[in-house]
């Protein structure tokens, strides 16, 4: 996984709440068995509309998504995170994220940043006034900066540590294999198994 320390880029203002993962990537795109190439499925239904904000020429090349509250609700599909990343997003900002989405994004290296809706509104206004507006998301300092606006954000230390160092979860866990084996030795025998030796 790539290390994430700080990112600066232009942003897409998505003035919608409850952007569920079916909107981020419809189920039809989930049939693939590869790990990359999901950018064409991102917001697929909305992108059919030439007026949709992501289709506007001034918002090409964006790397930060500024969305309404309750982003990433619904289906657990991790493809939603892959689609956002394949499209070029490094960061998503929202006042509230669905739990599964936030977990998925942290694992894949997409930074989801919770900030107050008031901050989102200010960012929307700034981007819409000037689409070349640069936003900086600093994971080290836990801040979002845009012109004079500096907004702190919360992220748990563990996820931050992993993102800053680009650490792979499985590798970390397998480092504690002895603990897993010790636990397994204590499991009661009435627990079910799917196949017997």
């Amino acid at each position: 996984m790539e290390k994430f320390t700080s990112h600066t880029g232009t942003a897409l203002p998505l003035r919608r709440s409850n952007v569920d993962t079916d909107q981020i990537i419809p189920a039809v795109y989930l049939k693939r068995v590869t790990r990359t190439g999901f950018e064409d499925g991102l917001f697929a239904a909305w992108r059919n509309d030439p007026e949709f904000v992501a289709n506007k020429p001034e918002y090409q090349g964006v790397s930060i998504l500024v969305a309404g509250p309750d982003f990433g609700t619904g289906s657990s599909r991790e493809h939603a995170v892959w689609a956002l990343m394949d499209y070029g997003f490094k960061v998503v900002l929202s006042s509230r994220f669905a739990d599964i989405f936030r977990g998925n994004s942290g694992k894949a290296g997409l930074l989801s940043v919770p900030v107050e809706q008031d901050v989102i509104e200010q960012l929307w206004a700034a981007i819409e006034a000037d689409p070349t507006t640069q936003i900086t998301v600093d994971l080290e300092a836990r801040t979002v900066t845009c012109g004079d606006l500096v907004a702190p954000f919360q992220i748990d230390d563990y996820t931050r540590h992993r993102l800053l160092n680009g650490l792979d979860d499985i590798g970390i866990t397998l480092g504690n294999e002895a603990d897993i084996a010790a636990y397994e030795a204590t499991r009661p025998r009435f627990k079910p198994v799917t196949q017997r030796a």
Partner: peptide
């Protein structure tokens, strides 16, 4: 529910 990288994590560990 979990995402695909968590599926991989559970399979492995």
């Amino acid at each position: 529910g979990i995402g695909t990288s968590e599926v991989e994590h559970v399979l492995a560990t």
